[in-house]
Design a protein around this nucleic acid. Structure first.
Lengths: 114, 114
DNA sequence: CAGGATCCGTTAGGATACTG
DNA sequence: CAGTATCCTAACGGATCCTG
């Protein structure tokens, strides 16, 4: 791994690959959001909310904003009434999907056993 | 992905594969700790502290305890004075290493560019 | 050496109500 | 429809000091 260079001199976790990655996908719902976007992009705000269920508007909104700020999600707004906004994944996010799949598989295998 | 079954009915994130995985490795230093253990197991407490740098004893201690409780880390205590404790990875943690590597690579590629 | 015990500040995220 | 605006709380993690 390319973490090797950090051995013994980690000052800010944020500056390590792991720290950075965690800051991007470590939000409580972010991986779920990315997963759902990957399944059926583009997705509208309320669709996403409905697909998730146990998330509040405010939380979904802020998680999406952070994902957008981190270059993971694209927000496309249609100037019409009623409003229509669509979210989709950036290439950066797409490049993470294989890894996410690994995390998902590992989680599935391990969450119900010790 | 096996997250498909959760679409529309996510009640607790913790119950999804992503939620579970995040609860296990989402701690601020946990991925770094697992990475360092993977490199040179078994490792003693203060060695680990030294290898990391910017972490306090208390934080390292609690992160290790949580990892142990989640079946990721084994703590071996030698009954001697001065004390000697060695930490190593469980099979469960070892099975996550390939995925961790993916996260690390992705982080390396993406942390310095948009 | 390997921690435990306290105290404490930040903040992520939930509940609820309101809006262009 | 797609959010804001507030308010609020739990808990994560840092700082510091102490100990078997």
């Amino acid at each position: 791994m390319s973490m090797a260079e950090f051995k013994g001199k980690v000052k800010n976790v944020q500056d390590t690959p792991f720290g950075y990655t965690l800051s991007v996908i470590g939000g409580k719902w972010k991986m779920v959001i990315i997963y759902l976007l990957a399944e059926n992009q583009p997705v509208r705000f309320n669709d996403l909310k409905r697909q998730i269920g146990a998330i509040t508007f405010k939380t979904l909104s802020s998680q999406l904003k952070e994902l957008e700020a981190d270059g993971m999600v694209t927000r496309k707004e249609y100037p019409q009434v009623p409003p229509k906004v669509e979210y989709s994944l950036t290439d950066k996010a797409e490049s993470l999907l294989p890894v996410l799949e690994g995390l998902c598989e590992w989680g599935t295998k391990n969450q119900n056993r010790r």
